[in-house]
């Protein structure tokens, strides 16, 4: 029992350190397991952290730091890249995210990002919309879309 306060303090410290990003985690990358983040080539922001992306894709944040509107776009729920993205960035499986959006839609709060069927559709969307952010399967042709690094 004497060690309990130390354990609690240690756990609290770990939480702070982790939240501050002081623990070496996944190194910054544009390509993660099974997907890569992309942005419009006119978007000067080339790197964001995971939490920022989570907030964007859950519509908790609607603007880039410079005030420009963010337009997130999803792949279809059945795609492998969508599942990987959901697990990795949103930290919840796709069905949990669907449940989240059910709550938001029927509570009259917010609408989910558009879901597009293919990587090329997502690339086209990102090229068309200056504030767009999306993800495609690793190796998909970007056709001028720029990678977005996840720190």
């Amino acid at each position: 029992m004497r060690r309990l306060p130390s354990l609690i303090a240690g756990a609290a410290l770990l939480v702070v350190i982790r939240s501050a990003g002081l623990v070496a985690g996944a190194s910054p990358s544009t390509s993660r397991a099974g997907y890569q983040m992309i942005r419009n080539p006119d978007n000067p922001i080339d790197a964001v952290d995971r939490q920022f992306l989570e907030d964007v894709f859950l519509k908790k944040r609607t603007a880039w730091p410079n005030g420009a509107v963010i337009q997130p776009v999803d792949l279809a729920p059945a795609s492998a890249a969508r599942r990987q993205f959901s697990d990795d960035v949103l930290r919840r499986p796709v069905d949990a995210i669907r449940s989240y959006w059910q709550q938001r839609i029927f509570a009259g709060r917010e609408l989910p990002p558009p879901e597009l069927g293919t990587d090329s559709d997502v690339v086209r969307f990102v090229l068309r919309e200056r504030g767009a952010v999306g993800y495609v399967s690793n190796g998909a042709a970007l056709n001028g879309a720029k990678p977005l690094t996840v720190k």
Partner: peptide, 8 residues
């Protein structure tokens, strides 16, 4: 402070 974002 908020989440980290960087620009080219």
């Amino acid at each position: 402070g908020s989440s980290s974002v960087s620009a080219s």
